[in-house]
Design a binder for these strands. Structure first.
Lengths: 251, 251
DNA sequence: TGGATTAAATTTACTCCGTATCCTTACATC
DNA sequence: GATGTAAGGATACGGAGTAAATTTAATCCA
């Protein structure tokens, strides 16, 4: 009523724009800053306008998951670990080229990279599937699942084994990242290491080992442990009956 | 002002009582039902009364984590998988008796059992540590960590390896349970399997493998996969230099 | 015994959140 | 140009978390 009706009052918004703003807001100020009202302000719009592009706040969270997996898929499409031509598969450039183990490693790395690129996205990605049935998951998430199952199928695994591998793969990735991202430090501004870790709060009598080890909690190579654990989980999977078409390196 | 001042209007509340009510409420009606006001009603008290026992709602969530790990520890104390006398250790009955692998298996099972006993606790247990520094975690959680590190120390692992095992252990347990508890079904009341799974929502053209496999998503043995994966993660850990005092069965 | 002290719980009230409902505006179409 | 429609705005309501001040009841000490 007051605004000079700038060029496009109409058509400012779109689902991608809304999701992008939501992701940006969460990245900048954390999950608790993500409110419909705040997001509307960021978009220069009244709160209710957002509801044209997402039906509720819960749906908006699923939108974050959607954006997350889109980014994972993008990364898989563009950053091939190997040299191979393009592919028909919506996910993963070098389809059918990499042996299945290597492809799963590649996916794990992409997943981790996107998690690290968005500091507070992990809790959402880890917990929303507890509330959303498979068939209603965001398309990009389904595409990645489809891709993984396709890779395992092509490698020759039967259905049951493919699912077992899939579950182990997802569980390990999620669990690892949840552990990697756990907050260790108490007050990051404190210069003294002991105080920073809040060690004075851990009585040595009750927690001797913990007290001794906490200072080392953050000293490890995340990627190395991610891949090492993944390999040990995958190595004890029964080999596919007619493997080694794409993957001659079987253990 | 109206109530007949039943025996004890004073001293009705206590931290354990508040936490128990919170757990019960979440178990009965889910996490979203847990509001300060609702919890107060359940306790027969005005909302602000709760703040004497927890400083905020976030603190209340940490209280849930506290209650959770208490229960895990209780279970470890009382349900020994083996016959051994009592122990001084606050956690785990047969201290130093079980080889480290078996003890970790026992803990994993207890953890899973408690998760399954409280349908909506997992997201809280999985994500709160992302916000709470180690030194401020609830005592029961710290006790369990201490116990695990002690077991690994006694088994002869050096600090770095013990931490690596600890991280892998926690990550696997959390990840597995998050995957186990993912919602598969769309409408549980629908008698037709296809509709129940919402398969009509998954176009076969885009998701051929997914569509074929979703009906088998829930057909697996959770405990078997939990333990199998745990074993494969642990088996590739470097053996402790002077192991085999308690654990002669090393690989 | 009886007032003072203190702990426990209530009262009141404020701000912010999600969102239902209704309304206005501008564009596309004929 | 009338009309239908889609995008966004205005208004409003109930419920959430919680700060602050207050009442109530037990405890302690004279």
């Amino acid at each position: 009523m007051d605004e000079p009706d700038t060029p496009e009052r109409r058509g400012r918004l779109s689902r991608p724009r809304v999701l992008a703003a939501a992701v940006a807001l969460v990245d900048r100020e954390g999950l608790t800053a993500l409110t419909m009202r705040r997001l509307a302000t960021d978009l220069g719009v009244e709160p209710m306008a957002i509801y044209r592009y997402t039906s509720s706040k819960e749906a908006l969270l699923d939108g974050l998951v959607e954006a997350f997996f889109s980014e994972v898929n993008d990364r898989l499409r563009t950053t091939a670990d190997t040299d191979a031509g393009p592919s028909r598969d919506p996910v993963g450039a070098p389809v059918g080229i990499l042996p299945w183990r290597a492809e799963l490693r590649r996916i794990a790395r992409a997943f981790a990279a996107v998690v690290h690129a968005h500091r507070e996205i992990l809790p959402v990605v880890a917990t929303r599937p507890l509330a959303v049935p498979v068939a209603r998951r965001p398309a990009p998430a389904l595409q990645l699942t489809e891709h993984i199952l396709a890779v395992l199928g092509r490698a020759g695994f039967d259905d049951a084994t493919a699912l077992t591998i899939y579950r182990a793969f997802v569980a390990w990735n999620l669990g690892r990242l949840l552990v990697d991202k756990r907050q260790v430090v108490d007050d990051p501004d404190e210069p003294d290491l002991l105080l920073r870790l809040g060690l004075h709060r851990l009585p040595a009598a009750e927690y001797p080992r913990l007290r001794a080890l906490v200072p080392k909690f953050a000293e490890y190579d995340e990627e190395q442990e991610l891949i090492a654990g993944l390999d040990s989980l995958l190595n004890r999977m029964p080999e596919p009956p007619l493997d080694s078409f794409y993957d001659g390196s079987a253990r």
